[in-house]
Amino acid sequence: MLWLRMGLTHPKKTVSSKAPSPLNGLSPGRPAPTPLLDAPPETICPTQALKEHGNVMTVDYTRCIHCRLCHQQPDQNRMSWEEGYQWAQMTSPRLPHSFRHSLHIRVVDAGDCGACLNELHQLASPVYSLHRLGIAFTPTPRDADVLVITGPITVSMKEAVQEAYQAMPSPKRVVAVGTCALSGGLFASSFALAGPLEKILPVDLSVPGCPPPPLALLHAFQLLMGAKSEEMRTQGVRT
């Protein structure tokens, strides 16, 4: 009774996926493409995420770790910073037909530092309330539609990741969450890695970020459910 009353008297406001602006700590933001810098990009970015492309300095978001070193440079070398969270990218042309109504997710930690996992965990809190969208975490891959992998895939976790994928029924999707899973990030040169994920499993959706904030993850799952058809149409994916 005590908890029922407390739950009712302490309502929590849910952040909707149409997020407010400014984002006020809901997302760390990331560097935006900027006109060419004076200094060579490899002296600025510790993960070599900055690439010259014509006369624009572009950002390889699968490598960016939001360290802000490129944003804290003197004027002529400063990358501009964008707010936002709609970072997920479809990386396979496969169609998201089967997951219109609900999505069951199995998360596998493959060497995560804990931040990506905690952001996934926060999705279940009343602030994001993942369940209202028909999305749920499931303890077994047999029930799962989506395999979410965080971390750079260590050698010892490789088989566990493969076994989880094989145990899932079709149709199934693989989501790589975080810079580590996408490119290895800062750990890319470690001898103990079997990753990044694309070397091991076919990746359907990538969510860059270090870690991607809960809103970015929510956006990614909605993409899988076909709810965000706008972005997919512009990327030439039929919904």
């Binding site: 739950g7 929590k12 931040a115 926060q122 994001y128």
Partner: peptide, 27 residues
């Protein structure tokens, strides 16, 4: 119920960190 209430407080703290330090986990 108390778990969710505490988790919401944690999220609030993550948002404070994010808004003022630039990163939710103080990276």
């Amino acid at each position: 119920v108390p778990q969710n209430l505490l988790q919401a407080q944690e999220e609030e703290l993550l948002q404070i960190s994010g808004a003022f330090s630039g990163h939710r986990y103080l990276f």
